[in-house]
Every structure is written in C-alpha cells, then in structure tokens.
Design a protein around this nucleic acid. Structure first.
Lengths: 353, 353
DNA sequence: TTGTAGGCGTTATCAA
DNA sequence: TTGATAACGCCTACAA
C-alpha cells in the first residue's frame, strides 16, 4: 500500500538503451554532446518507458525548486479567482510551478508555512493580505521572499502590491458630490482589511475637503449577502444615505438589490452606488455598477516582476511597495438622467452587456 | 544569480547542535528514539536556523511526492472557482499538496503533462473535462491516475466524476411543460462540452416523451455575454421560445438580462428560464434563477475518494465513473404568478435595470 | 541511545 | 563522445 508504480528513471532508460546513465542525462540536457546514434537509442527507450527527467534531484543539487506558493482564500470573490488564474498562467511562463495554498484568513498562513518550507518553495505570492506579524516573522526567519497583495505590513522579506485605494475613495467622493449626493454612506468590508480601510479613509478625506464630515458607515463582510444586510441596516430608521460607496463590488451588488427590491429605492435616481474591483457582474445589464477597475493583470505582472527580482539573488529582498492606480468606470449606478424622478425605474433599456 | 539563500539542512542543524545528522532526523521522526537532551539540543539549533525537514529527498526514496496536480481553466465561472477552492481545502487534509496547472482548453493538457511528470505528481485531478484522446493516451503511458470532472472519456488510468446531466435535462423539460411552456429553446455551451450535450440530450428526451419534437438550439460559450447574444439570436425573427433551458447559469443570466432589458420580454411571465450550477448570482434578488445545484462539495469529495484509492496501490486504477444527482432549485424564473399577464412587467418587486 | 554507511535520481566533473 | 564518480538532504539499516 502506498507503493506507487514508479516513474521510469534515467537508469531504467540507460539499461534498456544499453548506454550509461550519463548518456541519458546528456540527451536531455541542452548543449551537451551526444552522438546521434546514442541519442536515438535513448529516445527510443525513453519513449517506450514513458520517461520524463525528474526535477526532484535537481532541487537538492541547486537549492532551487522553482516552486512558488500561491496563497488564496475567499474565491467566491471573482476578483480573487481572476488573480489566481492570472498567476497560474504567468508563473509557468517564467519557469515557476505554482503550489496552491488555501487559507481561511490572513492569519492562518502560520499553519501552512511549515508545509511550504518542506517543499522548499522559492517564494510565496499571496492574493491575500498578510495580517499577522507572526506570519511575517516566520517568513523572515525562513528567508522566503513574499509578495502579498493589499498588505500594509512589510519587512526584509515581505513586499506588497496594491491598488491606490485611498485615491479611489477621494475620486468617488468627488463623483458622488458632483452627481448630487448629499448624505453619504460607506459599506465596509471586514474591519481587518487594509484595503477597505484605505478606501474609507480616502472617501472621508475627499468628503471632508468638500465640507462634509458625516459618513454613515455600515460593516459587512466582502459578500453579496453582507452588502444586502448592511444596506438594510443603513435605512433602518427610514432615512439613509443617498450615495453609498461600497468596499467591493459584491457588497455593492447586494446593496443595490436590497435598495431596489426590498427598500423600494431607485438606483441611481434615489441613491448613487459605487463599488470596487470591476468584477464581471458589475457590467451586467441588471446592475451597470460604477466601480474601480482593480487591475488584476497589472497587479500580477508587478508581483511576478518582484518575484523574479527576489529569487534572482540570495540577499533579502523585501519592503518593496508597488501601488497601481485603479481606474474609475462610471456606469449607470451613478449616472442620473436629467428627469429621473419623473420616469419609470428603468431608464437604461439599451446596452446589452 | 539564481543562487538562493539555502534552506537549512539537517546537516547544518547537526553541526550547530554538535550531534550527528541522524540524531536530527530521528528528532523529527515520530516514534524514533532520541534522548531528551539530544532532542533539546537539536530543537534549539533548528529554531536558530529556521530548519524544517525537506520533503524532497523523501520523494526520491519513496517514489511518492504527495503532490497532486489540479487542472483548471475558465475560472470566470464561479462553479470552477468553487471546485478549485474545495480541492485546495480537501487535498491537504488527506496529506496531499496541490500543484496548480492552468490550461486553456481540455486539449492543452498535453502541454502541461510533461511538466507535471517532471514534478513526479502522484495523481491529477481535473476540474475540466479531458477531451483529447492524446492526453488520455499520454496519461496512460505515464501511469498517472487521473480523476476528471464531466468527462466521458475513460481508460485504465482515467476516472470521472460528473453530475447527472441527462436526468436534469429531463426534469427541466417536465418543469417547463407543467409551467405552461409550449415553445422550447436551449442555449448550449461549447459544442465540445459533454456536460452541455448531455443536458441537451436529456432535455430533448424529456420533451419527446411529452410529444414535443421541436427544440430551438442556440450555441454560446459558457459566458454571460454569450448567453446574452444567443438569446438575441433566438428571437431574431420576432417569435421565439417561451421556455429556455441554458447549459449553465452564466448563460442563463445573460439570456435573462437580454430578454428583459433588450427584448422587452418578461421572465418568467413571457419566458421561463432555467440554468445549471447554482452559482451565487443565481440566487441574487435581481435574477432568482431556477437551476440545478451542481454539488461541487460532493463532487470533490468523490474525486478525493477516488484519488485515495488510486494512489494506494501500484495497479492501474481507472475507468471508474461516479455520477452525482443534481438537485433542482426552483426560483422565480420559472414560477409564474397566476395573473402574470395582467400585471406590470416587473412582478418580482422593483425592476432591476 | 547514538553515529556511520548506503542509496534514492539527477547533474557536473573528470578521465578515458 | 563516452562512462564512472561525487554530491545534494534525507531516511533506514546496522554497528557501536
């Protein structure tokens, strides 16, 4: 039991081909000298045995595994699914093989770390923020370069890539104001999320510079259902904001549906709504949500660049911080028609999606 | 360059602790004898060096890597994201480390296989169907057990886990008929998808046994935009089906939005719509889509069970087929209110837009 | 309880 | 061009 049918080894091939093991090795090493005859014999035997050279011994010899851990969680959010897919495509292109690690929250990276170290990963990329200083400390001790998304924490081995969350908050404050918003709300993600907090911070700052000090804040998790519940909460006492910035798109979509279908509010005519991420559903005809494009492709590209730099030398490589601008996409959820209050709720008929 | 700071080895620890390398090994091996003093010395040195035993040499010794490749693609579909996440959670629980492989279509597994073989994976689980006989042949030659979702192809090394797609098609035919449907449509996914074809086959069979031979079929890919376009296509000449079964939820949501917002059709009052997968958006208030729960948790559990069985022995283990029932969830998209045709277009509270 | 020795599958080095 | 040999880090005998 547990006794797997072994993969063919170069020795097996050598024996079958009637050559030395080194001859087999050379056949599979670019730029080493093998005679055509030997090569042919080797390839024939290899084909017969289904031989592929193993990378495992090489890891021992070179101290490089070309394995990179990808840390994910909360894949219900299409943004993370997109990030993961992008990593899965890009890492192999530069010769790395992704190893998947799922954690429930940023903190439980602690549990996964020893396992990763056992596989001798060359680096760790995390779609999730690293929140626990303990994780960070462990990482530093293991001397594994880490690139994490939307993380404020950094040290000699931990770098970060993030969107310009704070600026986005400011931009949306201006937009809401220009579109006639007067009572402002925010639905936050988990309190521990730096990204959510930064968005709120920028939003507050933007409103303050417009002379507005009051922001109604509801707490949610990053899901549709939480957004729906938080929206209901904001209007509990009858009144409520006429402009709501949500920490991400899922929250915003939940809030929109609650506003429209449970609270009888029109979006955008009664309430302006905006989100963050630009997940596919944000552009669906039923929503047409104004949001910020969190550029997963760009973020992954930056992360990959950092990773290459980090794995190129033995020196600590961390503390870097890359901030990518997030682009506003204005859609119907903040675009009031001139005579909105006179019309039926559906003003946008056209536009297929 | 490329010279990574090495992970500490047991030899490093032994040297620092002033003991032999085997003493270190024993310290980390359950049930081997080490004196408390030696153990203490070893652990102290190990802590200082950040030592974690490497699994790499063990792979060579035992011919077991405990690595399992997870093949994914099309992560824009929340169903696949959920499957992947589930694998990422379950595999480590039984001692396997997932290795992520992204392919664009079932066929390009070919390209990824040699790389996987090089890492000496113990098995492959594929969220995607294996479509290329060549892939399957390669797999058989490499003698790697494979468990693939929704695949009709099987051989000595390839097993499959799938939903009962055909039965679902029959069930929905009955449902549509009972809800008053009279002109039936189907929006298919990619033609190469066995799952989509099976759903259509069952749908056709169900309708046939109700005396209905005519089904209008539109082709789409598995995305929202494709569903939207395919729906428009079905109504190109003015008339069109009054009941549409879609190969998956994304297609159904796109079709619903096109029906409601571009074609001025009411769902469910003018057209009944159903999908497949039960992705989160299917239960969003704006849609309330009738669909089938494709039980990702159950499917992964079955896949994991097959994997355990397959990796337990050296014998070929394939050709197994597990079919899981998919459960119908009826929501508003097929539930007509009694006087639907007398009411305003929006019978499900406010209208989305 | 300890340490020494051999071997896993590669690649790099060296001698033939 | 070839083949023998050492080395990587660990585990499992085996001997002390």
């Amino acid at each position: 039991m547990g006794e797997r049918r072994r993969y063919a080894s170069s020795t097996d091939v050598a024996r079958l081909a009637g050559v030395s093991q080194s001859a087999v090795s050379r056949t599979y090493t670019e730029g080493r000298s093998v005679s055509p005859q030997t090569r042919a014999k080797v390839l024939a035997a290899a084909g017969q045995l289904g031989y592929r050279p193993s990378l495992i011994p090489r890891i021992m010899l070179t101290h490089r595994s070309y394995l990179v851990a990808i840390v994910v969680g909360g894949m219900y959010n299409p943004f993370y699914a997109a990030v993961l897919e992008q990593f899965a495509v890009k890492l192999p292109e530069i010769g790395f093989q992704p190893l998947l690690v799922h954690v429930d929250s940023g903190d439980s990276l602690d549990d996964a770390l020893p396992r990763l170290a056992s596989y001798r990963v060359d680096a760790v990329v995390s779609a999730l923020a690293i929140r626990s200083a303990r994780s960070a400390g462990q990482l530093a001790q293991l001397a594994i370069p880490v690139i994490a998304f939307n993380t404020s924490f950094r040290n000699a081995w931990v770098s970060s890539v993030s969107a310009d969350n704070e600026r986005a908050g400011r931009v949306i404050a201006d937009l809401f104001f220009n579109r006639g918003g007067s009572r402002f709300g925010f639905i936050a993600g988990a309190r521990s999320s730096t990204a959510s907090e930064a968005r709120l911070k920028g939003y507050r700052a933007g409103l303050r510079s417009l002379g507005i000090l009051d922001v109604e804040v509801a707490r949610a998790d990053f899901r549709y259902e939480d957004g729906a519940a938080a929206a209901a909460e904001l209007y509990r006492d009858g009144v409520g904001p006429d402009a709501i910035f949500c920490a991400n798109d899922l929250i915003a979509l939940g809030a929109m549906d609650t506003l429209r279908h449970r609270l009888g509010r029109r979006v955008p005519d009664d309430v302006l709504v905006a989100g963050f991420d630009d997940i596919p559903a944000a552009s669906w005809v039923a929503y047409e949500l104004t949001t910020f494009v969190q550029d997963s492709i760009g973020m992954v590209a930056e992360a990959v660049a950092l990773l290459l730099a980090a794995t190129a030398s033995a020196l600590p490589f961390g503390g870097r911080r890359v901030v990518l601008p997030s682009r506003l996409v204005e859609r119907d959820s903040t675009t009031r028609s001139p005579a909105a209050h006179l019309e039926a709720p559906t003003r946008d008929a056209g536009q297929p999606a």
